[in-house]
């Protein structure tokens, strides 16, 4: 009996503690952190894509990615993990044209995300590289992480 009571007490305490702490502090996943992570990541991957295609003169600076993220439309607060984040990335493509891409982003509670871009702007899932081989397109879909503290 004592054993069961101790165990019940321990579980009760754990539930109470987690309940009391629920909602404490600032959220880990915010619009600001996501935007700061996705822009430079996209630019880096776009440069990598250009390298694979044998295009020269594409740098993170020339891509100049600017990001604006929103979660689930205007009525949903832009915080927290979920599959309903949308990030608009404004960038200069490999032909020097300004582009606006709508990226679907799935953000996880562990401060990682999966972003996928429109194939019209960035190409299909696989690319034919400058050596004629089929390779994965780095900007088609990618994993990223951001700092949940800053």
């Amino acid at each position: 009996m004592t054993r069961t009571r101790t165990l019940a007490l321990a579980i009760g305490l754990a539930v109470a503690a987690s309940g009391a702490l629920t909602g404490c502090g600032q959220p880990d996943v915010t619009k600001d952190r996501l935007e700061r992570a996705i822009g430079p990541t996209f630019a880096g991957l776009y440069v990598h894509r250009a390298d694979l295609l044998g295009e020269h003169g594409i740098t993170v600076r020339s891509v100049g990615a600017v990001t604006a993220c929103d979660r689930g439309g205007p009525k949903v607060p832009d915080v927290g993990p979920g599959p309903d984040w949308i990030c608009m990335i404004h960038f200069t493509d490999d032909h020097g044209q300004p582009q606006d891409g709508k990226f679907e982003v799935q953000v996880r509670a562990d401060a990682t995300y999966i972003a996928g871009g429109p194939s019209k702007l960035i190409g299909q899932a696989t690319l034919t590289d400058s050596h004629g081989q089929d390779v994965p397109n780095p900007v088609f879909e990618w994993d990223g992480a951001f700092d949940p503290d800053h």
Partner: peptide
């Protein structure tokens, strides 16, 4: 519980 996101900083515990 951690994947739900409602815990915020308490998730670290």
């Amino acid at each position: 519980v951690g994947s739900l996101g409602g815990l915020n900083k308490a998730r670290r515990l």
